[in-house]
């Protein structure tokens, strides 16, 4: 009896529940969008608007003070045909990216593996190792870097202990870029945290199974940890790659805004800044900005295309 009676009521209840959920979801969405509004306004006014404006400006001659004058593709043509400093800035940036990206990822991964160990007070270690990336992008650290690597700096003193001559790493054209690469590697904190989170996600059963089968730690790393970590490696790769292409502050501070000595630290973005705000060629600088956007886009696309051959996703096991 009761079962029969209750039947329609349950039917009503089940029919009504989804509808209520849908309405609540819409309400949630609305609230979500409301919360997003400040951010959206920021994006439209301070990112999308200027971005579009810079696209227009990249086809003009614009010195900031007088109205922009349309010149068509001239800025883009000039960049690649008659500006040796521009081509040089690309070489400097590529060297920086090629070395700093893999090296900083390796550093982050190695530290993440070490800090994944179950030891006492590991949380404190993790916090300590994260500190450099909180400081690393700042002007203060770039100034400190100058001190460490100049001819009277700690680093030079250290080399002297081993009988090497005192050199100023900051002011030698062949060496200055390496101090900046090293600065980038030192900021391993945020990829390290992401690697750590990824390591925690790998099921412990896999390792248990592997050890019972007699696999060594090294074999476990190669056959379990690394393959399962590839999505995280990929994510970190994309972030670090974009980040490195955009590097500006350390080069600006270390070279006092000149890209010196002898343009050896003339990063792409630094040359862009010099053109825009020192030479007052804002149209030319905008063209540089757009070329960079395209280049970063291409590199990111390459990373995505190659990823299907080396990134292993748990949700797509069929491949």
């Amino acid at each position: 009896m009761t079962a029969v009676e209750s039947e329609p009521r349950r039917a009503v209840a089940t029919a009504a529940r989804p509808r209520r959920r849908v309405r609540r979801q819409h309400g949630d969405n609305l609230a979500g969008y409301l919360f997003l509004i400040p951010w959206l306004i920021g994006v439209v006014v301070f990112v999308a608007g200027p971005t579009l404006a810079s696209l227009y400006l990249s086809f003009t001659n614009f010195n900031l003070l007088s109205a922009p004058r349309w010149v068509g593709l001239q800025n883009y043509i000039q960049l690649f045909t008659v500006d040796p400093r521009y081509l040089h800035s690309i070489v400097v940036t590529v060297i920086y990216v090629v070395f700093s990206v893999p090296l900083s990822l390796i550093a982050a991964l190695v530290l993440a593996l070490l800090l994944n160990a179950k030891i006492k007070g590991v949380g404190i270690y993790r916090s300590i190792y994260y500190v450099p990336s909180l400081l690393g992008g700042s002007v203060a650290i770039a100034i400190l870097w100058r001190q460490i690597f100049d001819s009277n700096g700690i680093f030079s003193k250290l080399l002297q202990l081993f009988g090497l001559p005192a050199t100023s790493w900051i002011s030698s054209p062949g060496l200055a870029i390496w101090t900046l690469i090293f600065l980038h590697i030192w900021q391993f904190g945020s990829p390290m945290v992401i690697f750590l989170a990824g390591l925690k996600q790998i099921p412990a059963e896999l390792y248990e199974a592997a050890s019972t089968e007699g696999a060594s730690k090294w074999r476990q790393l190669r056959s379990i940890t690394l393959p399962l970590l590839t999505p995280i490696v990929f994510f970190n790769l994309i972030l670090t790659l974009i980040n490195s292409f955009q590097a500006f502050t350390p080069a600006y501070v270390v070279s006092s805004g000149t890209g010196g000595p002898l343009d050896s630290t003339l990063f792409y973005t630094l040359y862009l800044y010099i053109n825009g705000f020192t030479n007052f060629r804002m149209g030319y600088a905008s063209a540089q900005g757009w070329v960079l956007l395209i280049v970063v886009g291409v590199f990111t696309a390459i990373a995505f295309i190659t990823s299907r051959y080396w990134v292993y996703y748990e949700d797509s096991e069929k491949r």
């Binding site: 990112v47 971005t51 973005t269 905008s286 757009w290 886009g297 990111t300």
Partner: peptide, 22 residues
């Protein structure tokens, strides 16, 4: 991944402001 990468790349663009006639 795709969305976050595109978003980050977009954020690097140079901001510029245009001036009125003098």
């Amino acid at each position: 991944l795709m969305t976050s990468a595109v978003g980050t790349a977009g954020a690097l663009l140079l901001a510029a402001c245009s001036s009125g006639g003098s």
